[in-house]
Simulated assay, not measured.
Amino acid sequence: MEGIMKCVVKTAAGVGNVELVQRPIPQVGPNDILIKVHAVAVCGTDVHIMNWNEFASSRMIPPMIIGHEFSGEVVEKGELVSQIQIGDAVSAETHIVCHTCDVCHNGQEHVCPHTRTIGLSRDGALAEYACIPAENAVVFKKFANWEVLSLMEPFVAAVHAATQFPVAGKSVVVIGCGPIGAMGASVAKKCGAAKVIAIEPVSDRGKKALEMGADVLINPIEEEVSKAVPMANDGNLIDVVLDFSGNVGAIQSSLTYIKPEGKIAVLGLSDRQLSFELSEFVYRGLTLKGIAGRRMYQDWETAKGLLASGLDLSNIITHKLPMTEFKEGLRLMKTGECCKCVLIP
C-alpha cells in the first residue's frame, strides 16, 4: 500500500522527544501483514520511553514508532502469508522470537533470549498503520469492540500470571491493582478462586479491582497486611499470591500470610533486591515463579476462552482520546489518573 500516515515517534534519545509525525505507510515483506490500526492502549513502557529511563534507553534506538498494545484490521499481507486473511480483526503478541535457540525449541519462546519487541526494538503501532510478522498476529472472530481488543497484550500477561498455578477453590491475594493487576483479579475469580483479596493503597485502583471481581480490598497503608489478610480469609493463610506491583516489601510481606507449599507468581518489576530467609522458604516448601510476558501462544488461547465465557474488560478503559492527544494519554498513565487510556488513530 502506498501513501503517508500519521504516527507517534520517539524522535531522539533523551527525556521527551516524542512527537506526532508523518511517515510513509510501511511496506510488507513476504511474511508480514499490514494492519489498519483502530485502537492503541497506552502502556507504562511508553512512559518509560518518554522519560528515557534505563529500561528504555538500553533497548531502543530512535527514531522509532512507539506503542504495542493495539487492535486493528488486516488490509494487506505478504506473499507467503496463508494463515491470516484480509479483513481479519487482530491483536498481537509483541515478542518476536528467534525459533532457533534451545529455549524456543523446548517450547519456552516467551523467554527467548533473542526476543525483539514491537514498539521498543522495532517500529510499533501508535500509528494509522502497523506492519508486523504474520505469526505475531492473533485473530479474534468475536470481540466487544476495538478498544477492548487493544487490551489483549497486557490482559494475556495477566492470564499467564493468574493461571501459572491452579487457583480453582483456592484463596488468592493480588498485590498491586493497576490495569494488569485488576485484570489478574478478574481472571483468578473467573477461574474459580474461592476468595480474591486485593492489596492496593490507591483508592481508585482498589475500587477498580473490586469492580473486576476481587472479594476484599486491603489498603496496606491503613492496615497491617500480615493480620488483615488472614482475617479477610476467615482466619486462614493464603494459597496463591499474584504480584503485579514489583513492590519488594509487599512480596516479602506475603511470606507472613502464605500457607506452607504456597505459590507466589511475580509479574511486577523492580530494581531492588528481594531477600528472605532461605531455610524458611525451603522448610515451608514455597514456590516463587517469575512471569515473563505471555506463553506463546497457550495464554492467548486461554484468554479467548475466558472472554467467551463472559469475562468483561470494558471497565478497565477509563479514558479514550484521539491519537493527536497522545501527550495527554502519556500524562494520564504517568500520573496514575487513568486505569487504561486508549488512543484512536
Rank of each mutant, 00 (worst) to 15 (best):
V28T: 12
E135R: 06
F326M: 02
P345F: 11
R23C: 03
V138W: 06
P260D: 15
E261Q: 13
I238R: 03
S91G: 13
P260V: 06
A182L: 09
F55S: 04
I221V: 11
A292F: 15
M50Y: 15
E211Q: 14
T115M: 10
A292Q: 15
A182V: 07
I66K: 05
V81E: 02
F165H: 10
I264N: 07
V240S: 03
G87V: 09
E109K: 14
G78R: 01
N247A: 15
Y297P: 06
F70Y: 12
E79K: 14
Y129H: 12
Q273W: 01
C177K: 07
Q252M: 13
V75S: 05
S57L: 07
L269S: 11
L126M: 15
K259D: 01
V216A: 08
G213L: 07
N233G: 06
G124L: 06
A194L: 14
C7D: 01
V225Q: 09
L330T: 06
R59I: 08
K10C: 04
P113S: 08
E328K: 10
I66M: 15
E200T: 08
G249P: 06
R294L: 03
A157K: 03
Q108F: 12
K142H: 13
P154I: 00
G29A: 10
P30F: 01
T117A: 10
A13L: 00
D271F: 09
G72N: 04
H319D: 15
I35K: 04
S58G: 14
A41W: 01
